[in-house]
Design a protein around this nucleic acid. Structure first.
Length: 455
DNA sequence: AAAAAAC
């Protein structure tokens, strides 16, 4: 706890907790990584000490935009609420109703939910919201982005007017303010960080790349290999398909990596995230599902494989590193097509991001210097099955593989996506026969991290 | 140019 920075209150905690305890509504403007979660979990623990939950009538409700965030808040209750004998129910999609139903039936002190699943439960008539005393709306700006506001309105409507509401958002644009005005009564406003700031401890760089997929992948591998202090990293892509493609490519190059995006089944999402947190998986390829709020302590690097289309997402992505005053590095691969998005980011964060090699104008123009490998290499692979999109970048990557820096030695995915190219791989062994045999984690992965189960 | 969330 001390290590996590909770030995003394953070500004948002200092500002919000006393008011929450006096049952005032709170409008908190705080980014993740500011101790925001504890600023509602801790007072809730105190307020819940009196009284007990009745069957099917939860006493408090916390709404989160993504399943991972909801699970994370549930973990916080387990951590801080050890001695409070609370019933915590996590209601998220992608997993079965049964256990959730049982927890509701037993009487939940705390309900932590994503909007869709919560409404699903209420519509089945097994969940009564009339006993809710505290409503927490977390990540409101993101709820808005994701189109959840109508759901939130429906939910708020079935919760008694006499409730206390704690409302949190990283930013407070006019639409969010209007929303806050609707949900809150005479709130205390607590604001702790300017919305578009990036941590000063994060070293940010742009990396010029040519625009083809395989060229970007090669650029990415090259920056990864250049890092001598890489402990773990999140690699962000704009699309789920890119996440999947990049994962396959990196795995073929024997990087230990896993993927996280919203089309994956919940079991894989949970397992991969847990392995990444535990340090078993050093590289996480992810969509923006991982950009906000996920509490992964001490991510040393963030790589933006794609420049985010929305500038705010850049701030959220690189906010995964440099947390709690630690050092972090963020590299953004940019092609000539990304110029306007880069401009928008620099405008938002109000500073220029340096180019890695000081070559802003060389976008796509520096081919000769970096590529000693002639195209002739390609001829050797013509009878291969014309499948995996990753084929093309194999030969070019080979020369760099020999003296890679602290490269992860294992491959782990925890899901079904194994490179189905064993024979092809063997035939290319000569390209990297100095590589150690990859060791998979496979079954080594701890059992499905049951959300809310503590160890 | 996208992602996320209910079945």
């Amino acid at each position: 706890m001390t290590e996590a920075g909770y030995s003394e209150p953070t500004p948002i905690q200092e500002g919000a907790i006393p008011h929450a305890l006096t049952r005032r509504d709170v409008c908190g403007i705080a980014q993740t990584g500011t101790g925001k979660t504890a600023s509602f979990v801790l007072p809730m623990l105190t307020l819940l000490e009196r009284g007990r939950a009745r069957a099917r009538m939860p006493r408090t409700l916390i709404l989160e935009p993504t399943r991972e965030l909801a699970a994370q808040v549930a973990e916080n209750f387990d951590k801080y609420g050890k001695n409070h004998k609370l019933n915590v129910a996590l209601l998220i999609g992608g997993v079965s109703f049964d256990e959730q139903d049982r927890k509701i039936e037993r009487g939940a002190d705390v309900l932590i939910a994503t909007p869709g699943r919560l409404l699903d439960h209420t519509e089945r008539g097994k969940l009564l919201m009339t006993g809710v005393e505290i409503l927490v709306i977390d990540e409101a700006d993101r709820m808005l982005d994701m189109g959840f506001i109508p759901d939130i309105e429906r939910i708020a409507k079935i919760i008694p007017f006499t409730r206390q509401t704690l409302f949190f958002s990283a930013t407070m644009p006019p639409e969010i303010q209007k929303l806050a005005d609707r949900f809150l009564q005479n709130p205390v406003r607590v604001e702790v960080a300017p919305p578009s700031s990036t941590a000063a401890t994060v070293e940010q760089k742009l990396v010029a790349s040519k625009g083809k997929d395989y060229e970007k992948r090669e650029t990415l591998r090259s920056i990864i290999n250049q890092q001598d202090d890489l402990k773990n990293a999140i690699i962000f892509c704009n699309r789920k398909k890119s996440v999947a493609d990049l994962l396959r490519s990196l795995q073929r190059h024997e990087y230990a990596c896993g993927a996280l995006h919203g089309d994956m089944d919940q079991h894989s999402r949970t397992t991969i995230l847990q392995n990444f947190r535990d340090g078993k998986l050093p590289l996480l390829v992810a969509s923006d599902v991982a950009a906000r709020g996920l509490d992964i302590p001490d991510v040393s690097h963030v790589f933006n494989y794609d420049v985010p289309i929305h500038a705010e997402d850049y701030v959220h992505r690189i906010g995964r590193t440099g947390r709690a005053g630690r050092k972090g590095k963020a590299f953004t691969i940019a092609t000539s097509k990304d110029t306007k998005f880069v401009d928008a980011i620099e405008k938002l964060i109000d500073r220029k991001i340096e180019w890695l090699d000081g070559t802003p104008s060389s976008l796509g123009a520096e081919d000769s210097s970096e590529k000693p490998e002639p195209r002739a290499r390609r001829s050797g692979k013509k009878q291969q099955a014309p499948s995996a999109a990753t084929d093309k970048d194999e030969p070019k990557a080979a020369p760099q593989q020999d003296n890679r820096a602290p490269r992860p030695k294992n491959t782990a995915n925890g899901s079904s996506s194994k490179p189905a190219n064993d024979d092809r791989r063997r035939s290319r062994r000569r390209d990297r026969d100095d590589e150690p045999t990859p060791v998979g984690f496979g079954d080594d992965i701890p059992a499905f991290m049951l959300i809310g189960a503590k160890n």
